[in-house]
């Protein structure tokens, strides 16, 4: 297995040589799962209608990501190549089910608001992609850093969407009124269409910032 890792070239090889703080930082900004990799769009668009939903979804996904990365990484020498995807899905599904129970135990209201999207974390391609592309090839320590970086990056992006949508669509942030009483809510922002608009605007801002950095 160690030889295989050495044989890998390109992106993954470069990751292995970089210092370990980079494993954490890259997910936050340079390889942000939402704004740069555009992964896991289903929860990003569907559960980002309020800041609290976005934050809860982001943290739930981060938890699953962290736990599955740890398990996949520690079992990486045990899982045969042919059944690796099936094993990853099984591991991810387990942690999603656990998260589902835990959220129900924390708050019935929160569970109601997130609805079916908790179960859908299973098919969030972000988690599978980290398991396949990173955790299965790296040590537990690195995988933890990678999961934390990607998880926080995902949570941060969801929160960016959720905050904008809640402020404009509901006139509040975390349920606390943000504007004077007679503020006119832009109802479209909490509807699915608003998710697409907000995501597009954030992507625009990110790409413009990146372009500016590249040219200067």
């Amino acid at each position: 297995m160690a030889n295989q890792i050495k044989n890998n070239t390109g992106f993954f090889a470069s990751l292995q040589e970089s210092p370990s703080t980079d494993e954490f930082v890259k997910g936050l900004w340079r390889d942000n799962p939402v704004f740069v990799q555009v992964l896991g769009m289903c929860p990003v668009l569907a559960v980002s209608n309020t800041a609290i939903n976005a934050l809860a979804m982001g943290l739930a996904t981060s938890f699953v990501l962290l736990m599955s990365n740890v398990l996949v990484s520690s079992l990486r020498n045990f899982i045969p190549k042919q059944v690796r995807i099936a094993s990853y899905i099984l591991i991810i599904a387990t942690f999603v089910t656990m998260t589902d129970y835990i959220i129900q135990a924390i708050s019935v209201d929160l569970h109601k608001a997130l609805g079916a999207f908790i179960s859908l974390i299973v098919v969030n391609c972000l988690i599978l992609s980290r398991a396949e592309a990173f955790a299965s090839k790296n040590t537990i320590g690195k995988s933890v850093l990678d999961a934390l970086g990607m998880g926080f990056g995902f949570t941060f992006a969801l929160f960016c969407l959720g905050a904008v949508r809640e402020i404009l669509g509901n006139g509040s942030i975390f349920g606390v009124p943000f504007f004077p009483d007679n503020f006119q809510e832009w109802i479209v922002m909490i509807l699915p269409a608003g998710g697409f608009f907000t995501l597009a605007i954030w992507l625009l801002i990110f790409n413009a910032a990146k372009q500016r950095k590249a040219t200067t």
Binding site: Q184, W186, I187, V188, M189, L191, A193
Partner: peptide
């Protein structure tokens, strides 16, 4: 269409 979705009452 955007106005209709944003301000359905007005």
């Amino acid at each position: 269409a955007v106005l209709q979705a944003a301000f359905p009452v007005a």
